[in-house]
Amino acid sequence: MSNILSPPISDLRVHKPEQQTGSTETKTIGSTAVWILIYAELTEFALFFIVFLIAKAHNPELFSAGPGTLNTTAGMLNTLILITSSFFVAKAVSAIKLGQREASIKWLWLTLLAGVTYCGIKGWEYYWNEAAGFDVSTNLFYSLYYYLTFNHLLHVLMGMCTLLWVTLRAYFNAYSAADHEGLESAALYWHMIDMVWIIIFPLLYIL
């Protein structure tokens, strides 16, 4: 079987160093499917970034004036919050690996709280834009800004639904130190959302 799944999938099995276990016990991080999803999403966002860059090169004045009109504070706060949420969810994974279910659930709730805060700030940012007279059809910069950030917001919402699901599953004792693939997969997806924002923030708000 391994040869048909070669090579990316067979690589998902991590060979623990022999001195630790004395055998070649294999271990995976997350489900293979979630890595496919993550890479598909990253590719999708990469395409958006390239579109943005090309549009920027062709409309230099518009795009160099653009970032100055955006609410940088909101963008920065959201970056800080997403990084913090990544930290929370990483703590949740490390807690479940130690078998601390209660702690893991606590960290998951904090991650969700960060997600809600992110959405709140995004809402404020959109409201702020509207008050300043900017919307999707203002110009090409704003169209792309809304397309990128709204798309990202939808991913955050999707990630939050997934996290809520694994939180409930954790609550009903579905995960243990030995088996927590679902929780880990959801956490990886959440990290991917953070990864994309790490690039969106300088691209849209600073450069």
Partner: peptide, 11 residues
């Protein structure tokens, strides 16, 4: 945070 430093080299 994703804890990939020592695992899943290709990924």
């Amino acid at each position: 945070l994703m804890a990939l430093r020592h695992s899943l080299h290709r990924i």
